[in-house]
Design a protein around this nucleic acid. Structure first.
Lengths: 226, 226
DNA sequence: TAGATTGTTAATCGATTAACAATC
DNA sequence: TAGATTGTTAATCGATTAACAATC
């Protein structure tokens, strides 16, 4: 598999391709052309062919793409077959929801342990994942291969926990706290899930539409007054 | 306030500006230049000035920006002062976490009601928000001003609930289901929070690094063999 | 006033789209 | 073979960066 310096925009489209290809498989579609796929995703055929060509030649002239084969290629590109191992830190509301409802294994990630400070939780397990005390963190990381930490602690704890993780040379953090975890100079990869950012951009687009509608109404009123 | 056709990239940076400006206020910083702000956010001063200039002139030559004033401008641009009203649909794990932990009002949004099918939940309330039965949805939307629906139902229910919301001409959907809610032709604004997409792009970057390290190790081994 | 820093125009860079030869 | 569709090269478009006159 090729792997040139691929732009962030391309990377963010890959999971959408995967999802659509899974959907097509489920619907019994065996092959698809770049124009059909583009139509279904709101992208141009050119863009789709460009995107895939970053990683190899997955199609066939005159035929298109084999859905199952392409799906497996995309999955491989995303690293879903690498068996990355994750720990969850913070089994509060959001952490618990992830443990209970989010199927890590569906995305090729294995959740191997969870950590919390709540004595009532420590020692219990959900979906086969045991919750340990936070004081065991460093020891656990030393003795077990862990690729990423899912950070779901309260705001207040975010910074100190991050420092502990970075000190343990954790490879990556999937950040559900509403904090910017810039640890400049550290090699840790950070991916943020900022609920508030998402809500605010939605709020922006709602405002924009509201203003447009008000402007239209004002024009109408003016017209009627004439 | 100006409001030209502003690119999506700019919109996605606005919530980050807001967060940083709040942080600066908290730290007692009263003014900041575009270069300082850029440094702290990993952006160029030019980009910051360009971004703000989409909406007006908020700075002062020779001085920079007043942090508090700029913060308020950004908040207004994002529509945080418009009192948008939201309902939550689905009080399962993720819905419950949002109700319990996510401070809607901090972002200018008012959560006015929740809906679920679970009889044990109907009639109860969390943080002052009452949970109603799903059969009341249409009636509620008819009799109350609601700007957006937070969709946190299980996968299976996503499609049918979306159809009901669109039929009620809901203005916007904040989508926490892992489904693509493309309702083409509808005027509903959709903002997705796809956990799996986020995890997979993280997985991509972890894979990329893994490959780079393997390549480096291979080069080293070859060198040593010579 | 002199220094600093904006807002904006121009230049550059990168990403998307179009075109087309290659080929299944 | 003829039609379809790829992978890739070239053209276009848009976003980011640089430069600079305006001005606090």
């Amino acid at each position: 598999m090729k792997r040139l310096k691929v732009s962030h925009n391309v990377i963010r489209r890959l999971p959408r391709y995967l999802r659509k290809l899974d959907e097509l498989t489920e619907a019994g579609v065996g092959r698809i052309s770049s124009s059909d796929l583009g139509q279904q995703l709101g992208l141009t055929p050119s863009q789709i062919r460009q995107d895939f060509s970053c990683f190899g030649e997955f199609g066939q002239q005159g035929y298109g793409y084999n859905v199952a084969a392409l799906r497996d290629q995309v999955a491989a590109i995303l690293g879903m077959n690498r068996g990355f191992r994750a720990i969850l830190i913070g089994v509060g509301n959001i952490g618990h929801a992830l443990m209970d409802n989010f199927c890590f294994s569906e995305w090729g990630v294995c959740l191997v342990s969870a950590f919390d400070i709540n004595p009532a939780l420590i020692g219990t397990s959900f979906n086969g994942v045991t919750i340990r005390g936070m004081e065991e963190l460093e020891n656990y990381l030393e003795n077990n291969a862990v690729d990423l930490a899912v950070l779901a602690v309260p705001r207040e704890a975010a910074h100190s926990v991050t420092e502990r993780l970075v000190a343990c040379k954790i490879g990556a953090i999937w950040n559900f706290t509403n904090m910017e975890l810039t640890e400049p100079g550290s090699a840790t990869i950070v991916e943020n899930v900022h609920f508030s950012d998402s809500l605010l951009s939605l709020s922006y687009y709602m405002s924009e539409r509201q203003d447009e509608e008000a402007a239209r109404a004002a024009r109408m009123a003016k017209k009627n007054a004439e």
